[in-house]
């Protein structure tokens, strides 16, 4: 399990990184945390001739508030998200989810940018970004552009990111203060991808749901924003019937693969359970 040979580049700025990508073309891959790419390279399922390590670009680090939004720069690690006061206070669901990603060592390396840009349906952050309606800031040879997380994913490992582009930051609208949130992830063990996972952010007033957004992980070849499922509980007191409607609406859009985590039927079923549990836990947290 040894990667094929490559040339290593460590640009100091996004501009330099983009320049390298433009020059080196298809044979170059940007390297973020590396915990998806390097194992692929070791199995020689990926054999880039050039690796462009983004760790030297300080401008890609950090979490900042920009008005009502939180901007997480792409090379911010999950471990750094866990230590961020901004995340803890405005987007606690990111903290809850980060703790459920892989294991401590990998969280020190894995980045938010890598997690969302890679297009692996098993990654947890993409569904979160969809339910939060985040924007991905992308820089490329033709300048900057923004793609909504909800428009970014096209298939397993296929995204709106064009060759030569780098995802530089994620801009997340801060949910209303007092919102409830939960990320429910069923997995076989620490380090596994979700058998099924659901994230919920909601607001309530007087015991009635006033807004709700639901995201689903590893239940299709892309992350899923379960719009109808979220709408199904708005205006309800989250009674059993509403929970069931939401779960059914979510299940309707799931198309997981059968694998060692279980057959399709099971994964959809527990996907629905995760939705219901996340809704209940989020409601309990909503002010």
């Amino acid at each position: 399990m040894i990667p094929g040979p490559f040339t290593y580049h460590r640009p100091g700025s996004v501009a330099d990184a983009l320049k390298l990508l433009a020059e080196l073309g298809d044979e170059a891959r940007p390297l973020a945390g590396g915990h998806s790419l390097i194992p692929m390279m070791k199995l020689r399922l990926a054999s880039p001739e050039h690796l462009i390590d983004l760790h030297g670009i300080t401008a890609l680090k950090g979490v900042v508030r920009e008005g009502d939004r939180v901007v997480v720069r792409a090379m911010t690690t999950q471990h750094e998200l866990l230590g961020s006061d901004v995340i803890a206070s405005i987007l606690p669901i990111l903290k809850e989810t980060s703790l459920l990603i892989a294991d401590p060592q990998i969280r020190y390396c894995g980045t938010l940018g890598g997690n969302v840009a890679n297009g692996d349906p098993g990654n947890d952050m993409p569904a979160l970004m969809q339910l939060l309606n985040a924007d991905f800031l992308i820089e490329g040879p033709d300048g900057q552009r923004t793609v909504a997380a909800r428009d970014f994913y096209q298939g397993a490992y296929f995204t709106a990111l064009e060759p030569g582009e780098i995802l530089t930051a994620i801009s997340i609208p801060g949910p209303a203060s007092g919102h409830g949130y939960a990320y429910e992830k069923l997995k076989r063990k620490v380090g596994d991808y979700a058998t099924a996972a659901a994230g919920v952010v909601m607001t309530m007033e007087g015991g009635i749901v006033t807004s709700c957004s639901i995201g689903l992980t590893n239940l299709a070849d892309t992350p899923l924003w379960a719009q109808e499922a979220g709408e199904a509980v708005v205006g309800t007191s989250l009674d059993d019937a509403a929970l069931k409607r939401a779960a059914d609406a979510a299940i309707a859009i799931m198309s997981p693969a059968a694998d060692g985590r279980g057959p399709v039927e099971y994964r959809k079923h527990v996907g629905g359970i995760m939705v219901q549990r996340a809704l209940k836990r989020a409601a309990a947290r909503a002010a």
Binding site: R188, K189, V190, G191, D192, Y193, D259, G260
Partner: peptide, 24 residues
């Protein structure tokens, strides 16, 4: 150690071959 019906091993890594951590 699981083989699919075509004889391919589907449990070739420590993610799919269940080796519990301290948490489980």
């Amino acid at each position: 150690i699981h083989y699919d019906e075509n004889g391919n091993v589907t449990t070739g890594s420590l993610m799919d071959f269940f080796m519990p951590t301290a948490v489980e």
